[in-house]
């Protein structure tokens, strides 16, 4: 069970072509950027990096077999990033890929993912729920 942590800052989902299809901030760990800035940043993730560390935060990247990337922004000392990304991948597989109204490679209809995340809230997974509750 993953527990709630203030060390998580944000979650991105990047499609095969490098387009940002989902972006959500959690908490106040990082300043908000404009949507264009996020799109430009996401395009940089075409290479297979796993972890990128900055001075104040760390990006952990999960590259899936289909080329979709999940990026979690956390504090430098956050140890749960990998397991959270796995969980996010599971939620994505359920709430996005099994949704007939989602078009592959297109931006993710937020409602589906949020509902799935809420469902995890009922199952006691506070961290994923925090993405919903703390998002702006």
């Amino acid at each position: 069970m993953i527990t709630f942590s203030y060390g998580h800052f944000g979650l991105w989902v990047i499609n095969k072509a490098g387009g940002l299809v989902y972006q959500r901030n959690v908490g106040d760990g990082l300043p908000n950027l404009t949507s264009n800035e996020y799109l430009v940043l996401a395009e940089r993730f075409t290479l297979g990096a796993h972890v990128i560390s900055g001075e104040t935060f760390k990006m952990t990247i999960l590259l899936t077999a289909t080329g979709t990337k999940f990026v979690l922004l956390t504090s430098l000392v956050e140890p749960t990033a990998e397991s959270v990304l796995q969980k996010v991948y599971e939620v994505y597989a359920d709430a996005v890929m099994k949704n007939p109204f989602h078009t592959p490679e297109m931006p993710i209809g937020v409602k589906g993912l949020i509902l799935a995340l809420l469902r995890y809230l009922y199952e006691g997974d506070m961290l994923l729920a925090s993405y919903v509750m703390f998002s702006k």
Binding site: A95, K98, N99, P100, F101, K111, G112, L115
Partner: peptide, 13 residues
């Protein structure tokens, strides 16, 4: 796992 878009909100699968 179905999330109906807002413009079709009356749809029930």
């Amino acid at each position: 796992y179905i999330s109906v878009p807002r413009d079709m909100s009356s749809l029930s699968c």
